[in-house]
Design a protein around this nucleic acid. Structure first.
Length: 529
RNA sequence: CGGGGCGUAGCGCAGCUUGGUAGCGCGCACGGUUCGGGACCGUGAAGUCGGAGGUUCAAAUCCUCUCGCCCCGACCA
């Protein structure tokens, strides 16, 4: 890879071969569930995006431009609008359904911050498919087909992964799942329950935090001079953070809301947004104005504002701000304030699964794909309708399904490497075999190397020959670095005994084989993969 | 968008504090030795010091503006 600018990368030959291998696997598995490949423009007219409301709903993340006559255009960040437009022209009758159409196309997003190398770029390839159905049941079927196809795709690509519940976000729709590849390089976190199989992005994972031991406190005010943060007060009072009640004021479109979480927890903004809508943290001046107290000493009692409290606060006694400077109150419990109760904390390692009560495991992951049930969110505004058996006009029920091939490649590397470099999974390696003639000036070496190259090629095996005039050490190091699964080492000394080495990149195990048997032996090894 | 950092040879960097000859490693070219885990010796080519303006006898170095890239956060199919 070479970086051209922030979030823009050039694929060099080896990397591009990997992408093509991944795309081939994707095409095969999409074909296997009856999807048909098409190709849609990257440049879109604004009107279609205006009809679904996303022209305005999406902010700076969309690249926008005008053509020479001043017409508003944008560069596609995804293709729901265009696909739905197409469906509105092509689909007339329930007899035309179901349909699944997909493309592997460039998407453009003006990311606020491109990062993590190839994981978050401004231009990237995406396989996006869209299903069109007459009923929810039929959508469910296509959704399931995609989930199964995705499982097969990631398995063939040699990834460890899991499917988790996710937040539909800007895509709209009610149900969605993400496919996640565990890796420290990832940007997301998922909560997993080994016992019952519950798995969800921490953005929406429900969890039951461990409870505090019982305390027996009389309600009393305590003087806490200049102690504002949970850490400061908990150190001062020699109590763990979990005995505190944290009050956070946010501003919503409908006014201020006081959010309450336990002292050792973080407020999850997306979970809160599901309850109160869009919000932002209140500024210091707003705090004072609305609650009449400065930050650090806020408590839930005695305010008229709407209060949303986390479930973890339902039981037990806590220390909260006293709503007057330099004082906290010990012995506050749920009975002391009126609140709406929701799970609004960030799920953590060790919290209990809200389904089965066993401890949750939180893991960092790379998002490698997702599937959404869109319903009629796009078909209604774009008038993509069909006539049902009764001649009734009804909106098409849609799903959309994405996979990022570059993220598959990145996850494959993150999950498969050692100190010497990459170890490509067999199915997506740029080549199957690398031949290393150690001394290209030796006639015999090159004769054997070229003969083997030809024989592998004839068998349809992708073979790379390092015929550079380099020292053996350089070739070994480079071969390990680029991670082609099988290395064929041709050295002068072994050749005198008519022997050639076959070496596994992953295990570094080497076997010496008679020259004539190399092709057969390698073919057998590859079948074992 | 908030905070921080960095732009000097193809790549990685030093030099900037205290203004005065632009340097190191790798790579590259040539010659020689070496040749199964990133060789060694010698010679050589290669830089508008990100850009613009200013201060100064003199700017890579000081000042102002600007562009780009990276990191943390916010945001994010």
């Amino acid at each position: 890879m070479r970086q051209l600018a922030a979030g823009l990368y050039i694929y060099l030959p080896l990397g591009w071969r990997v992408m093509n291998k991944i795309n081939t696997i994707i095409r095969e598995e999409m074909g296997a569930i009856g999807a048909q490949e098409i190709s849609m423009p990257v440049l879109h007219p604004a009107e279609i995006w205006q009809q679904t409301g996303r022209w305005d709903a999406i902010g700076d993340e969309m690249f926008r431009l005008k053509d020479r006559s001043g017409r508003d255009m944008c560069l596609g960040m995804t293709h729901e609008e265009i696909m739905t437009w197409l469906a509105s022209r092509e689909i007339r009758s329930y007899r035309d359904l179901p349909q699944v159409w997909y493309q592997i196309q460039t998407k453009l997003r003006d990311e606020a911050r491109p990062k993590s190398g190839i994981l978050r770029t401004r231009e990237f390839l995406m396989k996006d498919s869209y299903s069109f159905d007459a009923s929810e049941e039929a959508l469910e079927k296509n959704y399931k087909l995609h989930a199964d196809a995705y499982h097969r795709i990631y398995e063939r690509c040699g990834l460890r992964f899991f499917m988790v519940e996710s937040d539909p976000g800007m895509m709209g729709g009610a149900v969605s799942h993400e496919f996640m590849a565990p890796s420290a390089a990832g940007e997301d976190e998922v909560a997993l329950c080994k016992n019952c199989g519950y798995s969800a992005n921490v953005e929406l994972a429900l969890s039951t935090p461990l409870k505090n031991g019982p305390v027996d406190w009389q309600r009393e005010e305590v003087h806490t001079p200049e102690k504002r943060t949970i850490t400061e007060v908990s150190n001062f009072l020699k109590l763990s953070a979990s005995h505190f009640l944290k009050s956070i004021l946010v501003m919503t479109e409908k006014g201020p809301v006081l959010a309450l979480v336990r002292g050792d927890h973080d407020l999850h903004e997306k979970k809160l947004a599901k309850v109160v809508g869009n919000h932002r943290p209140a500024q210091k001046s707003e705090l004072k104005e609305i609650l009449g107290v400065e930050a650090g000493f806020i408590g839930p009692m005695g305010h008229k504002v709407r209060i949303v409290a986390d479930e973890a606060l339902r039981e037990g006694m806590f220390v909260s701000g006293a709503n007057k400077p330099h004082y906290h109150i010990r012995g506050v419990s749920a009975a002391d304030f009126e609140a709406e109760w929701h799970d609004i904390h960030v799920a953590r390692e060790g919290d209990l699964c809200s389904k089965c009560g066993n401890p949750l495991h939180v893991e960092r992951v790379i998002e490698i794909g997702n599937i959404f049930k869109l319903g009629t969110k796009y078909s209604v505004p774009l008038k993509a309708v069909f006539l049902d058996e009764n001649g009734q006009e009804r909106p098409i029920i849609m799903g959309s399904y994405g996979i990022g091939p570059a993220r598959i490649a990145a996850a494959a590397i993150e999950q498969n490497n050692d100190k010497d470099g990459m170890i490509w999974p067999e199915n997506i390696a740029p080549f199957d075999i690398e031949i290393l003639p150690l001394n290209i000036k030796d006639t015999k070496t090159m004769e054997v190397a070229e003969d083997l190259y030809r024989k592998f090629a004839e068998k349809g095996i992708d073979v790379l020959m390092d015929d550079r005039e380099e020292r053996a050490g350089v070739k070994f190091k480079d071969a390990d670095l680029i991670g082609i699964p099988t290395q064929i080492v041709i050295g002068e000394k072994n050749l005198k005994d008519n022997l050639i080495e076959i070496k596994s990149r992953r295990t570094k195990e080497t076997v010496k084989v008679k020259t004539a048997e190399v092709v057969a032996r390698v073919s057998r090894i590859r079948k074992d993969y």
